[in-house]
């Protein structure tokens, strides 16, 4: 199994009840659970979903974490 892609975990590891996503890494419980058994194809799928959620949510809701500094 080839699995080199890095986890998006940033050690916050708290779920947002409304979105069902981790407020640190934007993954679902299922995506975090399966990470260690996922190959790179599955990981890139999860990372793409994470990127999409960030893009969709950050402009409206501000920063998902208190130390995120994505701004122009």
């Amino acid at each position: 199994m080839s699995a080199m892609l890095q986890s998006p975990c940033i050690n916050i590891c708290k779920m947002d009840a409304a979105s069902g996503l981790c407020i640190g890494c934007w993954r679902t419980i299922d995506e975090i659970t399966v990470w260690s058994r996922s190959d790179d194809a599955a990981r890139s799928h999860i990372l793409a979903a994470v990127a999409r959620r960030r893009m969709e949510n950050e402009p409206e809701t501000g920063h998902p974490t208190k130390n995120s500094t994505d701004h122009d």
């Binding site: 986890s7 050690n11 590891c13 260690s36």
Partner: peptide
């Protein structure tokens, strides 16, 4: 068995 792997803090 299933490994639940997060960052270094846990």
């Amino acid at each position: 068995l299933l490994v639940l792997e997060r960052g270094w803090l846990s």
